[in-house]
Design a binder for these strands. Structure first.
Length: 260
DNA sequence: ACATCTGTTACGGC
DNA sequence: AGCCGTAACAGATG
């Protein structure tokens, strides 16, 4: 599920349904081996506080308040944050549960156990700890061009490097490069200023567009790669063919005709 | 049975 | 020192 727009959709659910309610208890779910989750002391720290605000940086989601502790959530590949009412029962794969006053609950689901939750003093402290670069929607053209244009490896890998800029993953890096007609393997140092400018703009447009749909991919424009991300399919934008390859250990899809 | 997967990270090489 | 690339991680799904 989660790159920046998907993390944003999760943050919005918390923002809408979990603010300004006193936390009464914080519990772990079933089968939490291998997961990094707050221990007894960290969970107790949250009790009695309310979340009054949320924040997102790249793929990281935060909830907290001006003076109280924060939770920092990384969704991994398959995680999600799900507010629910006690009367409806918890979702499956719930690994971490917050009980707010009244009927409201918040579950951190994580079927594949690649996500994590921490209790921290502030978002900025956690962002510094994990060494994330600027958020992909905050980074300006100048710094973007510096960071991506200065990268000696594949442009796709640079876009996905969270220390360079935070928020872009495998799916949307493909979409960005498809939009601007750049081969995912092209070296960053081999990109012209104009290509970097186009890429920065495409990144912003793609992330905002996906965010606007709250990550409902069926509502995205027909000429996006996402709908034809399959080896051998025809390119929606030219006469080319979509090819699958490996870039930086991840599967990459690109049009062999208009992406050079 | 086997390959795949929107996440990171540890480690070796340059 | 830093940057880069690859293997590894865990478990559901097709």
């Amino acid at each position: 599920m989660p790159e920046l727009p998907e993390a944003e959709a999760n943050r919005l659910r918390v923002e809408r349904e979990c603010l300004n309610r006193t936390i009464e208890a914080v519990e772990l779910g079933e089968d939490t081996d291998y997961l990094e989750l707050p221990g007894d002391n960290e969970r107790t720290r949250l009790v009695g506080h309310q979340f009054t605000r949320t924040h997102r940086h790249g793929k990281l989601i935060f909830a907290g308040s001006k003076t109280g502790p924060w939770i920092a959530v990384h969704l991994g590949m398959t995680g999600s944050l799900r507010p629910f009412d006690e009367s409806d029962g918890a979702p499956d794969y719930a690994k971490f549960l917050i009980r707010f006053e009244g009927d409201r609950r918040l579950a951190f689901r994580c079927p594949r156990k690649l996500g994590w939750v921490r209790v921290v003093d502030s978002p900025s402290e956690e962002i510094a700890r994990i060494e994330y670069g600027p958020d992909a929607l905050e980074i300006g053209l100048e710094e973007f061009a510096e960071v991506i244009g200065g990268s000696r490896g594949a442009t796709k890998s640079a876009l996905m490097d969270q220390r360079k800029l935070a928020g872009v993953g495998n799916l949307w890096s493909d979409e960005i490069l498809y939009r601007v007609g750049i081969d995912p393997e092209r070296k960053g140092t081999n990109l012209a200023e104009e290509a970097l400018t186009d890429m920065h703009e495409a990144m912003r447009d793609i992330l905002y567009t996906v965010m606007d749909t709250e990550a409902h991919y069926d509502r995205l424009p027909d000429d996006w790669l996402i709908h034809t991300r399959k080896a051998g399919s025809g390119c929606p934008r030219c006469d080319g063919t979509i090819e699958k390859s490996k870039v930086g250990g991840r599967s990459a899809y690109h049009c062999t005709r208009h992406q050079k």
